[in-house]
Amino acid sequence: MQLKWRVGLIHSFLIAYSLIAVLPILLVVMNSFKIRKAIFGTPLALPSAETFSLVGYVKVLGNANIGIYFFNSLSVTLISMATVLLFGAMAAWALAEYRFKGSNLLALFLSIGIMVPIRLGSISILHMMVDLNLVNTRLALILVYTAQGLPMAIFILSEFISQIPRDLRDAARCDGVPEIAIFFQVIAPLLRPAIATVAVFTIVPIWNDLWFPLLLAPGNDTQTITLGIQQFIGQYITDWNSVLAALSVAIIPVLVIYLIFSRQLISGLTAGAVK
């Protein structure tokens, strides 16, 4: 009896906190589907037949740029992720597998970036991009995000690689497999479970970043969705339907992807890379 009571208490606490976590988000998404009057009149009610309206979405999605913003975010994030994973895994492998003069020093050098945010170098990054004629290009963002994501990725992947049994690499060497093929054909396929962990630490910050898009690619053709929504809201600040719809447009895709992959994502996170 007492035990039941205690379990109940634990669940009510967890339910309460879960509500605190998701209610604000639901509130925004829910109201984005309502007519203006209902947004203010009955903000806590679900949209009903009378209050349902897509007027905000019509305006947001009618804004031809939203598609471009989405494409920009998607391409920047995916390409950055791919380069972070590829370069990061290659470097992590070399650091974990080959002992050479200065390898510890190099590992230390690469790990500075875990603790020191790349943003602090923004001024010089901007100057450099101006000199390279890369301002307002997606490439500028990709390069910076790759540099930003690498240290953490190398750290996580090194831990992961060091857990791959040494015998496996030795077996491949005895089999006469060349070093580069050992990496791409034996080690890389085994890194799949680490990708979720790397993703949380690199993709999410890239997709959600406001700073570098604002700094390096504020032009209309190169804006990311986060920046685009921010600017859109700035323009239509009093048009609640549009603002809520714009926020939802930014939230819903991420939410859907998150819910689909949450199990892998979270098990990747808890799989211990960071102990």
Partner: peptide, 16 residues
């Protein structure tokens, strides 16, 4: 193996 990571990281993170 190390070149790409070290180069991108040095140019766009450490140097700035």
């Amino acid at each position: 193996f190390l070149g790409p990571a070290v180069i991108v990281y040095s140019i766009f993170s450490v140097y700035p």
